[in-house]
Protein backbone atom coordinates (compact mmCIF):
# COMPACT_ATOMS: atom_id res chain seq x y z
CA UNK A 1 0.00 0.00 0.00
CA UNK A 2 2.91 2.26 0.83
CA UNK A 3 4.38 1.52 -2.57
CA UNK A 4 1.05 2.28 -4.22
CA UNK A 5 0.88 5.59 -2.31
CA UNK A 6 4.32 6.64 -3.51
CA UNK A 7 3.48 5.59 -7.03
CA UNK A 8 0.23 7.58 -7.04
CA UNK A 9 2.06 10.67 -5.92
CA UNK A 10 4.65 10.24 -8.65
CA UNK A 11 2.07 9.66 -11.41
CA UNK A 12 -0.06 12.54 -10.19
CA UNK A 13 2.97 14.73 -10.67
CA UNK A 14 3.66 13.87 -14.31
CA UNK A 15 0.38 15.34 -15.64
CA UNK A 16 0.78 18.36 -13.43
CA UNK A 17 4.37 18.88 -14.52
CA UNK A 18 3.27 18.79 -18.17
CA UNK A 19 0.40 21.19 -17.40
CA UNK A 20 2.67 23.56 -15.50
CA UNK A 21 5.24 23.40 -18.30
CA UNK A 22 2.73 24.45 -20.96
CA UNK A 23 1.20 27.10 -18.70
CA UNK A 24 4.63 28.65 -18.13
CA UNK A 25 5.53 28.38 -21.80
CA UNK A 26 2.41 30.25 -22.90
CA UNK A 27 2.90 32.82 -20.12
CA UNK A 28 6.47 33.48 -21.23
CA UNK A 29 5.41 33.81 -24.88
CA UNK A 30 2.60 36.25 -23.99
CA UNK A 31 4.78 38.37 -21.68
CA UNK A 32 7.72 38.42 -24.08
CA UNK A 33 5.45 39.44 -26.95
CA UNK A 34 4.25 42.38 -24.86
CA UNK A 35 7.82 43.50 -24.11
CA UNK A 36 8.98 42.99 -27.70
CA UNK A 37 6.16 45.24 -28.91
CA UNK A 38 7.33 47.85 -26.44
CA UNK A 39 10.86 47.76 -27.74
CA UNK A 40 12.37 45.41 -25.15
CA UNK A 41 11.91 41.67 -24.54
CA UNK A 42 14.19 38.80 -25.38
CA UNK A 43 15.11 37.87 -28.91
CA UNK A 44 15.95 34.34 -27.74
CA UNK A 45 12.40 33.70 -26.60
CA UNK A 46 9.56 33.41 -29.06
CA UNK A 47 7.69 36.65 -29.67
CA UNK A 48 4.88 34.84 -31.43
CA UNK A 49 1.40 36.07 -30.66
CA UNK A 50 -0.99 33.85 -28.71
CA UNK A 51 -3.09 33.47 -31.85
CA UNK A 52 -0.22 31.89 -33.70
CA UNK A 53 0.30 29.22 -31.04
CA UNK A 54 -3.38 28.34 -30.57
CA UNK A 55 -4.45 25.22 -32.49
CA UNK A 56 -8.07 26.40 -32.55
CA UNK A 57 -6.95 29.22 -34.86
CA UNK A 58 -6.11 26.53 -37.40
CA UNK A 59 -9.60 25.05 -37.11
CA UNK A 60 -11.38 28.33 -37.73
CA UNK A 61 -9.04 29.14 -40.63
CA UNK A 62 -9.88 26.05 -42.66
CA UNK A 63 -12.91 27.58 -44.40
CA UNK A 64 -10.95 30.72 -45.30
CA UNK A 65 -8.07 28.67 -46.66
CA UNK A 66 -10.40 26.57 -48.79
CA UNK A 67 -12.44 29.48 -50.15
CA UNK A 68 -10.04 32.42 -50.50
CA UNK A 69 -6.70 30.72 -49.96
CA UNK A 70 -5.77 32.92 -47.03
CA UNK A 71 -5.61 32.62 -43.25
CA UNK A 72 -8.05 34.37 -40.97
CA UNK A 73 -6.65 37.67 -39.67
CA UNK A 74 -3.80 37.19 -37.14
CA UNK A 75 -3.54 33.45 -37.86
CA UNK A 76 -0.45 31.91 -39.40
CA UNK A 77 0.62 28.46 -40.56
CA UNK A 78 1.92 27.60 -37.06
CA UNK A 79 -1.70 27.38 -35.85
CA UNK A 80 -2.45 24.92 -38.64
CA UNK A 81 0.60 22.83 -37.70
CA UNK A 82 -0.53 22.74 -34.07
CA UNK A 83 -4.06 21.86 -35.14
CA UNK A 84 -2.69 18.84 -37.02
CA UNK A 85 -0.52 17.74 -34.09
CA UNK A 86 -3.40 18.06 -31.62
CA UNK A 87 -5.66 16.05 -33.94
CA UNK A 88 -2.97 13.38 -34.12
CA UNK A 89 -2.73 13.28 -30.32
CA UNK A 90 -6.52 13.16 -30.07
CA UNK A 91 -6.80 10.22 -32.45
CA UNK A 92 -4.18 8.40 -30.40
CA UNK A 93 -5.25 9.28 -26.87
CA UNK A 94 -8.43 11.36 -26.99
CA UNK A 95 -8.56 15.06 -26.03
CA UNK A 96 -5.28 15.08 -24.08
CA UNK A 97 -4.93 18.67 -25.20
CA UNK A 98 -7.73 19.52 -22.75
CA UNK A 99 -6.52 17.33 -19.91
CA UNK A 100 -2.78 17.85 -20.18
CA UNK A 101 -1.95 20.94 -22.22
CA UNK A 102 -4.61 23.69 -22.32
CA UNK A 103 -3.46 26.45 -19.93
CA UNK A 104 -7.03 27.64 -19.38
CA UNK A 105 -7.98 24.13 -18.24
CA UNK A 106 -4.98 24.14 -15.91
CA UNK A 107 -5.97 27.55 -14.55
CA UNK A 108 -9.48 26.24 -13.78
CA UNK A 109 -8.03 23.14 -12.12
CA UNK A 110 -5.87 25.27 -9.84
CA UNK A 111 -8.88 27.30 -8.76
CA UNK A 112 -10.80 24.05 -8.41
CA UNK A 113 -8.29 22.84 -5.82
CA UNK A 114 -9.36 25.77 -3.67
CA UNK A 115 -13.02 24.92 -4.32
CA UNK A 116 -12.36 21.33 -3.21
CA UNK A 117 -10.87 22.56 0.04
CA UNK A 118 -13.84 24.78 0.70
CA UNK A 119 -16.69 22.48 -0.31
CA UNK A 120 -15.04 19.08 0.19
CA UNK A 121 -17.28 16.29 -1.23
CA UNK A 122 -19.97 18.72 -2.37
CA UNK A 123 -17.52 20.24 -4.86
CA UNK A 124 -18.39 19.68 -8.52
CA UNK A 125 -21.88 18.43 -7.61
CA UNK A 126 -23.75 21.72 -7.37
CA UNK A 127 -25.39 21.63 -10.80
CA UNK A 128 -28.47 19.36 -10.93
CA UNK A 129 -27.88 16.40 -13.26
CA UNK A 130 -30.64 17.25 -15.75
CA UNK A 131 -29.58 20.88 -16.05
CA UNK A 132 -25.94 19.81 -16.32
CA UNK A 133 -26.76 17.35 -19.10
CA UNK A 134 -28.70 20.02 -20.98
CA UNK A 135 -26.00 22.69 -20.60
CA UNK A 136 -23.32 20.41 -21.96
CA UNK A 137 -24.78 20.86 -25.43
CA UNK A 138 -23.99 24.59 -25.29
CA UNK A 139 -20.38 24.11 -26.28
CA UNK A 140 -21.43 22.46 -29.53
CA UNK A 141 -23.60 25.49 -30.29
CA UNK A 142 -20.63 27.76 -29.50
CA UNK A 143 -18.46 25.70 -31.87
CA UNK A 144 -21.00 26.05 -34.69
CA UNK A 145 -21.35 29.79 -34.04
CA UNK A 146 -17.58 30.41 -33.96
CA UNK A 147 -16.94 28.51 -37.17
CA UNK A 148 -19.86 30.23 -38.94
CA UNK A 149 -19.01 33.77 -37.87
CA UNK A 150 -15.29 33.35 -38.59
CA UNK A 151 -16.03 31.89 -42.02
CA UNK A 152 -18.39 34.76 -42.81
CA UNK A 153 -16.13 37.62 -41.72
CA UNK A 154 -12.60 36.25 -42.00
CA UNK A 155 -11.96 37.75 -38.54
CA UNK A 156 -11.12 36.21 -35.19
CA UNK A 157 -14.41 37.32 -33.68
CA UNK A 158 -14.11 34.73 -30.90
CA UNK A 159 -11.18 36.65 -29.42
CA UNK A 160 -13.69 39.18 -28.10
CA UNK A 161 -15.22 36.57 -25.78
CA UNK A 162 -12.27 34.21 -25.35
CA UNK A 163 -11.23 33.78 -21.69
CA UNK A 164 -7.99 32.06 -22.76
CA UNK A 165 -6.89 35.16 -24.67
CA UNK A 166 -8.03 37.34 -21.77
CA UNK A 167 -6.04 35.28 -19.23
CA UNK A 168 -2.76 35.84 -21.04
CA UNK A 169 -3.38 39.40 -22.22
CA UNK A 170 -5.38 41.12 -19.50
CA UNK A 171 -2.53 43.56 -18.82
CA UNK A 172 -2.12 44.69 -22.42
CA UNK A 173 -5.29 46.72 -22.90
CA UNK A 174 -6.06 44.63 -25.99
CA UNK A 175 -8.70 42.46 -24.34
CA UNK A 176 -12.39 43.12 -24.90
CA UNK A 177 -14.32 43.76 -21.71
CA UNK A 178 -16.70 40.86 -22.37
CA UNK A 179 -13.74 38.45 -22.57
CA UNK A 180 -12.51 39.71 -19.20
CA UNK A 181 -15.99 39.28 -17.72
CA UNK A 182 -16.17 35.70 -19.04
CA UNK A 183 -12.71 35.00 -17.59
CA UNK A 184 -13.76 36.26 -14.17
CA UNK A 185 -17.04 34.28 -14.31
CA UNK A 186 -15.09 31.17 -15.34
CA UNK A 187 -12.72 31.64 -12.39
CA UNK A 188 -15.62 32.11 -9.96
CA UNK A 189 -17.47 29.15 -11.49
CA UNK A 190 -14.39 26.95 -11.05
CA UNK A 191 -14.72 27.39 -7.30
CA UNK A 192 -17.99 25.43 -7.47
CA UNK A 193 -17.75 23.33 -10.63
CA UNK A 194 -14.62 21.67 -12.01
CA UNK A 195 -13.65 23.16 -15.38
CA UNK A 196 -16.91 25.05 -16.06
CA UNK A 197 -15.62 26.59 -19.31
CA UNK A 198 -14.55 23.17 -20.61
CA UNK A 199 -17.85 21.55 -19.66
CA UNK A 200 -20.31 24.06 -20.99
CA UNK A 201 -18.77 26.54 -23.42
CA UNK A 202 -15.41 25.58 -24.89
CA UNK A 203 -15.79 25.16 -28.68
CA UNK A 204 -12.42 23.49 -29.10
CA UNK A 205 -13.22 21.00 -26.34
CA UNK A 206 -16.49 20.24 -28.13
CA UNK A 207 -14.61 19.46 -31.33
CA UNK A 208 -11.86 17.40 -29.69
CA UNK A 209 -14.50 15.54 -27.66
CA UNK A 210 -15.58 13.74 -30.82
CA UNK A 211 -12.17 12.04 -30.84
CA UNK A 212 -13.33 10.00 -27.85
CA UNK A 213 -15.37 7.81 -30.14
CA UNK A 214 -12.44 7.05 -32.46
CA UNK A 215 -9.34 7.27 -30.25
CA UNK A 216 -6.92 4.34 -30.43
CA UNK A 217 -6.01 4.13 -26.73
CA UNK A 218 -9.16 3.96 -24.62
CA UNK A 219 -9.86 3.79 -20.90
CA UNK A 220 -11.24 0.39 -19.90
CA UNK A 221 -12.69 -0.67 -16.54
CA UNK A 222 -12.38 -4.34 -15.60
CA UNK A 223 -15.74 -5.31 -14.12
CA UNK A 224 -14.25 -8.48 -12.62
CA UNK A 225 -11.78 -6.70 -10.36
CA UNK A 226 -13.73 -3.47 -9.71
CA UNK A 227 -14.72 -3.13 -6.03
CA UNK A 228 -17.35 -0.40 -6.76
CA UNK A 229 -15.71 2.08 -4.43
CA UNK A 230 -16.77 4.95 -6.74
CA UNK A 231 -13.39 6.71 -6.40
CA UNK A 232 -13.06 6.86 -10.19
CA UNK A 233 -16.31 8.82 -10.42
CA UNK A 234 -15.21 11.19 -7.68
CA UNK A 235 -11.90 11.84 -9.41
CA UNK A 236 -13.42 12.61 -12.82
CA UNK A 237 -13.44 16.40 -13.39
CA UNK A 238 -16.09 15.99 -16.09
CA UNK A 239 -18.49 13.93 -13.89
CA UNK A 240 -18.38 10.88 -16.17
CA UNK A 241 -19.88 7.71 -14.70
CA UNK A 242 -16.72 5.63 -14.96
CA UNK A 243 -17.87 3.18 -12.26
CA UNK A 244 -20.69 1.94 -14.43
CA UNK A 245 -18.95 1.96 -17.81
CA UNK A 246 -16.85 -0.77 -19.30
CA UNK A 247 -15.20 1.56 -21.78
CA UNK A 248 -14.95 5.36 -21.54
CA UNK A 249 -15.89 6.90 -24.86
CA UNK A 250 -18.15 9.73 -23.67
CA UNK A 251 -17.64 12.93 -25.65
CA UNK A 252 -16.98 14.87 -22.43
CA UNK A 253 -13.88 12.86 -21.44
CA UNK A 254 -10.75 15.06 -21.46
CA UNK A 255 -8.29 12.14 -21.25
CA UNK A 256 -6.76 13.33 -17.98
CA UNK A 257 -6.66 9.66 -16.87
CA UNK A 258 -7.26 10.68 -13.25
CA UNK A 259 -9.63 7.70 -12.91
CA UNK A 260 -6.97 5.13 -13.85
CA UNK A 261 -5.47 2.54 -11.52
CA UNK A 262 -2.24 4.46 -11.75
CA UNK A 263 -3.83 7.61 -10.39
CA UNK A 264 -6.97 7.07 -8.31
CA UNK A 265 -8.44 3.57 -8.64
CA UNK A 266 -7.10 1.59 -5.64
CA UNK A 267 -7.16 -1.78 -7.44
CA UNK A 268 -4.23 -2.43 -9.79
CA UNK A 269 -4.99 -3.13 -13.45
CA UNK A 270 -8.68 -2.30 -13.12
CA UNK A 271 -8.98 1.07 -14.87
CA UNK A 272 -6.37 1.18 -17.61
CA UNK A 273 -5.46 2.88 -20.85
CA UNK A 274 -5.27 0.22 -23.52
CA UNK A 275 -5.25 -0.39 -27.23
CA UNK A 276 -6.90 -3.40 -28.75
CA UNK A 277 -9.39 -4.37 -26.03
CA UNK A 278 -12.84 -5.47 -27.26
Amino acid sequence: MEKKGRSMKKKWRIRNVVQLGFFLLISVIAINKYFVENGSGSSILSSASLHSVCPFGGVVSIYNLLTVGDYVQKIHSSALVLMGLVFLLSILLGPVFCGWICPLGTFQEWIGKLGKRIFKKRYNLFVPKRLDGFMRYFRILVLVWVIYITAKTGLLVFTNVDPYYALFNFWTGEVAIQALVILVLTAIGALFVERPWCKYLCPYGALLGFANSIKIFKIYRDENTCISCDLCNQSCPMNIDVANSKKISQLQCISCFECSSESTCPVPETVEIKWGEK
Binding site: I14, V18, A48, S49, H76, S78, L88, L89
Partner: peptide, 30 residues
Protein backbone atom coordinates in the same frame (compact mmCIF):
# COMPACT_ATOMS: atom_id res chain seq x y z
CA UNK B 1 0.04 2.93 -21.65
CA UNK B 2 1.22 4.40 -18.38
CA UNK B 3 0.79 8.06 -17.41
CA UNK B 4 4.47 8.87 -17.67
CA UNK B 5 4.58 7.34 -21.15
CA UNK B 6 1.60 9.51 -22.12
CA UNK B 7 3.37 12.60 -20.81
CA UNK B 8 6.48 11.82 -22.82
CA UNK B 9 4.40 11.00 -25.92
CA UNK B 10 2.59 14.35 -25.74
CA UNK B 11 5.81 16.34 -25.42
CA UNK B 12 7.58 14.35 -28.16
CA UNK B 13 4.70 14.67 -30.64
CA UNK B 14 4.28 18.40 -30.05
CA UNK B 15 7.93 19.43 -29.88
CA UNK B 16 8.95 16.94 -32.58
CA UNK B 17 6.08 18.05 -34.82
CA UNK B 18 7.05 21.69 -34.47
CA UNK B 19 10.70 20.83 -35.15
CA UNK B 20 9.75 18.95 -38.33
CA UNK B 21 7.43 21.77 -39.42
CA UNK B 22 10.31 24.21 -38.94
CA UNK B 23 12.45 22.01 -41.17
CA UNK B 24 9.88 22.33 -43.94
CA UNK B 25 9.44 26.10 -43.34
CA UNK B 26 5.86 25.51 -42.25
CA UNK B 27 6.28 27.01 -38.79
CA UNK B 28 5.40 30.65 -39.37
CA UNK B 29 4.20 32.65 -36.38
CA UNK B 30 4.00 36.12 -37.84
Amino acid sequence: LKNNQIGVLIVIILIGGIYIAKGFDLWVTE
